[in-house]
Write a protein that binds this DNA or RNA. Structure first.
Lengths: 175, 175
DNA sequence: AAGGTCATGTAAGTGGTTACATGATTCT
DNA sequence: AGAATCATGTAACCACTTACATGACCTT
């Protein structure tokens, strides 16, 4: 799974510009995949050179011209091949957890700050997901709903453990 | 946060060979960070060239010679600088969630198979964490315990949602 | 006047994966 | 006899990030 596959998936529904693809990544897809312009534009160029998508230049008034990309039959086949390939295992990369792992080389205050920061980040994500749900839900498939529910449930679980852990650390060895 | 930082963190406790570092990544650290030999050896070479670690060749009987790497003062300073740098936000990369997002381009049987696979993977991880805990717990710091608890709680939450979702999908549109 | 939106791209670099290459010893 | 353990490394490649470069229009 890589940006090529995901972009091909997005173009399945309708032709899009690089800029629109970037916006699609904002919400709610961004919770489990993201890409910047520095990835999107080179990837579109590559997909075009491979014959998976076709570029159409569209002139606009009062706006910069845009390149709209549409998926080809070869592109659909490529995407299907991805869906049929063996599933890759999930990876969770967390600077926070690595810091926790080595926290005994730092002072207690820093540890507490890290946990507070992580709680704030998890709360923000949790709220963004919950607040967005009413907007997205009507147009989401059942499987997409599952995606969102997994995100929400994981955030909840993480927050619960983090809050308990923080309370315990704050209680202990305090004057 | 990258392999350099993590390896420097591991060498804080005692000098290690590349092979030992790889083993350390197995359990329990591997749940939130992993690296293969193709990353470890070049990283060790780089860290040495930067003066953060020192190599000592040790001859062994009946075994290949090994290179034991010890952290230097500059290495400790480097690691401290990492711990004091701004915390990076977590990234969760999931082929499974991407597939769920595009599941409507596949048939129902495949969707069910994906979910079953993901449940099996999450169960395996959950069990590995739970089974390992009694062994690791005595030598773990409180912060490391928190790491493990977050992993366990997230797996639980994910499993719960996945099982409910699977049941619902199996119920619906079934003969 | 400042900041946001629409719009596209390149260049250089980082960081990591995969496959290859070797080989003795010990356990089952 | 075969698999696992101990042990180290390189080369080619891939994917992605960051910074740079440009510029008009619209909203506050």
């Amino acid at each position: 799974m890589n940006s090529q596959d995901v972009i091909l998936g997005l173009l399945h529904r309708r032709p899009l510009t690089g800029y629109e693809i970037k916006n699609t990544f904002e919400r709610p897809l961004s919770f489990f995949f993201d890409a910047g312009f520095g990835t999107i534009y080179p990837t579109l160029a590559k997909l075009e050179s491979l014959g998976y998508i076709l570029k159409e230049s569209v002139e606009q008034d009062n706006r910069p011209n845009k390149n709209v990309y549409a998926i080809t039959e070869a592109g659909r086949a490529r995407f299907k091949a991805y869906l049929e390939s063996p599933m890759e295992k999930d990876t969770y990369r967390s600077d926070f957890l690595i810091r926790l792992f080595f926290a005994h080389y730092q002072d207690r205050e820093t540890l507490i700050e890290w946990i507070r920061e992580e709680i704030a980040a998890a709360e923000a994500e949790y709220r963004a997901l919950q607040d967005g749900m009413p907007d997205w839900e009507p147009q989401m498939t059942r499987a997409q709903l599952l995606c969102a529910q997994i995100g929400i449930a994981s955030s909840e679980a993480k927050l619960r453990v983090l809050r308990e852990g923080l309370a315990e650390i704050e209680r202990s060895s305090e004057p």
